[in-house]
Every structure is written in C-alpha cells, then in structure tokens.
C-alpha cells in the first residue's frame, strides 16, 4: 500500500493529536488509580520498519509485561500497553499492596490479572475519548496479558501490516510518574484501512 509512504505532515499531526487525546485521558485515569501525578510525553507517530518497533521499548529481547487489546468497531486496530518489570512491580505495590518477591521471576495469576485490569482501564479511557473525538464507535476486546519479550509481544499486532510491506504506522505515548520511577508505553496500531476513516471523521480526508 503505497499510500503509507506519502502521509502528509498535517496528517501525521492529526494522528499525534489522536494519540494526545487518547493517552491524555488514559494518563488521567492512571493518575486517579495511583493517586499521584502522571506525566505524559508528546506522542510519537511514526512509520517504522518492523525491526525498529521493539527498539522503542529497549529491544526485541527486553522482557516486559504487555496487555493486548483488539480495537473493534469502525476503525479497527491493535492496542498495547507495555510496562517494564520494575514499573509493573511498583504499580502492583502502590495500587494493591501486592508485594512482588524480587527473586521470583514469574508473576502470580493474581498479579497478572491486576495488571491486565489496569491495562484494560487505561485502554478503555484511551478509546472512549478517541471515539468521542472522532465520532467513530471503537470498542476494546477482552484484554490479554503476556510477560515476555517485547519483540514477541509487539509482532502480534503487526500481522495486518505484514501483508503489505515491512513497516507499520504506530502512535506511541510514554507515561512517566515521578521521574521515571514508573514508566509505561501505549501503542495504538490502527489497521491499515482505518486511517482513511479516522481522517475523514475529523474532516481532513482526501478524495
């Protein structure tokens, strides 16, 4: 699909705003959950080769906790919420007083389920604000969580792009709480066919 190569600068700005609004609401939700201020970096919108996508979170082999949701509705896509192990432990500790045993590399079902629910709440607020903004219905699927290599997790959301090239367009937002003591990444990877709908709904469609 050649149209990916020629996104105009203003279209990328529109997608950045999409990320800003969605992640802004998610950051507010996270801040309420933790009862602490949460900062958010300016969203990055980029068309990246598959190889480089995992670099955003520290490389393909970086072990992370990843919550995955499929976005259903008018503008389908894939959504990931990735947190590094240290941040996940702090989150569990602050939120639920679940103390993760440092020597234990695995996570209990209870801990995974709690993190999955955090991901679910954040993704839900991301998507509902996005749906309000674009007037396109978007529903998250039931979330699933994996504790694994970032490359293995993220590649799962790239299959739709695989059919048409070796790169994917994604909207990434980083959360920071208290100078990086807690860091999370949101990735929204709209299906290739969804961009047209998002642009049109916001009145910047071509055609």
């Amino acid at each position: 699909m050649a149209e990916f190569k020629n996104f105009e600068a203003f279209e990328l700005d529109v997608l950045k705003e999409v990320g800003n609004i969605g992640a802004g609401n998610a950051a507010t939700a996270l801040s309420k959950l933790l009862n602490k201020p949460v900062d958010m970096a300016v969203p990055k919108v980029s068309l990246l080769p598959f190889e480089e996508i995992a670099e955003l979170v520290g490389g393909a082999e970086q072990v992370v906790l990843g919550v995955f949701l499929r976005v259903e509705g008018e503008a389908p896509g894939n959504m990931f919420f990735l947190i590094e192990e240290n941040s996940a432990e702090r989150m569990l500790n602050q939120l639920l007083s679940l103390r993760h045993d440092e020597g234990d590399k695995g996570y209990s079902e209870m801990e995974l389920s709690a993190l999955c629910e955090i991901g679910n709440i954040l993704a839900g607020s991301y998507l509902s604000s996005l749906a309000d903004f674009t007037q396109l219905p978007m529903m998250p699927s039931v979330p699933a969580i994996a504790h694994d290599m970032a490359g293995a997790i993220l590649s799962y959301g790239l299959m739709q792009y695989g059919e048409m090239g070796d790169s994917a367009l994604l909207i990434e937002t980083t959360f920071l709480e208290d100078h990086q003591s807690l860091e999370g990444h949101f990735f929204l990877i709209p299906d290739p066919g969804s961009f047209g709908k998002i642009f049109r709904s916001l009145g910047v469609g071509r055609e």
């Binding site: 393909a60 082999e61 290599m149 970032a150 490359g151 293995a152 997790i153 590649s155 799962y156």
Partner: peptide, 13 residues
Amino acid sequence: GGALLKTTGLGSC
C-alpha cells in the same frame, strides 16, 4: 565456516 545465526523475539513468527 562456523558462524552463528541469531534472531530475537520470535512470537507467532
């Protein structure tokens, strides 16, 4: 000639 081949982060691939 004895070189190593490596690929990282295989999920469904």
